[in-house]
Computed example of a mutant assay.
Amino acid sequence: MSKSLSIIFNKAPYGSQSGRELLDIALMAAAFDMEIKALFIEDGVYQLLDNQQPDVLYMKNHSPTFKALDLYGIETRLIAEHDLVERGITQEQLLPVAETTSQETIKQVISESDFVFML
């Protein structure tokens, strides 16, 4: 039986490389037939904002790469609804790559995972 890995995106996309690095880890781990779960909590919900323009900061926009999660077989992609509400973000403002859910569901997904990775 394959192991499961929850990757938790909890930081804003720019100001650190953690979002890009976690995305790379998720895609690489998927190549090893692990069950990968991408979870977006706290400021990590900003990772999925559509129409980002990091070029003004002289940074590369990695957010379109989240569209590849499905291609790599990463089926569980969840956003903490509470964190969206807290930040005044609507589902329509996000890339259509994940579904909103409760904090309780995210906690359950994490507790059922064999490994949890967060930077």
Rank of each mutant, 00 (worst) to 15 (best):
L5R: 01
I7W: 08
K11W: 01
Y14T: 01
S18R: 13
R20N: 14
E21F: 02
E21R: 10
L22T: 13
L23S: 11
D24S: 08
D24H: 14
I25H: 14
A26D: 13
A29K: 06
D33N: 14
D33Q: 13
E35Y: 12
K37I: 03
A38Y: 15
L39M: 09
F40R: 05
I41S: 09
I41V: 15
D43F: 00
G44P: 14
Y46F: 14
Q47G: 13
L49W: 14
D55Q: 06
D55F: 09
L57R: 01
N61P: 01
S63P: 04
F66Y: 10
F66D: 02
K67D: 09
A68F: 15
L71V: 15
I74F: 04
T76P: 06
R77P: 08
H82T: 05
D83T: 00
D83M: 03
R87M: 02
G88N: 08
I89H: 06
Q93R: 05
Q93T: 03
V97R: 10
T101C: 06
S102R: 08
E104P: 01
T105S: 10
K107L: 00
Q108V: 09
Q108T: 11
V109R: 04
V109K: 04
V109N: 05
S111M: 06
S111V: 00
E112L: 07
D114H: 08
F115Q: 09
V116Y: 03
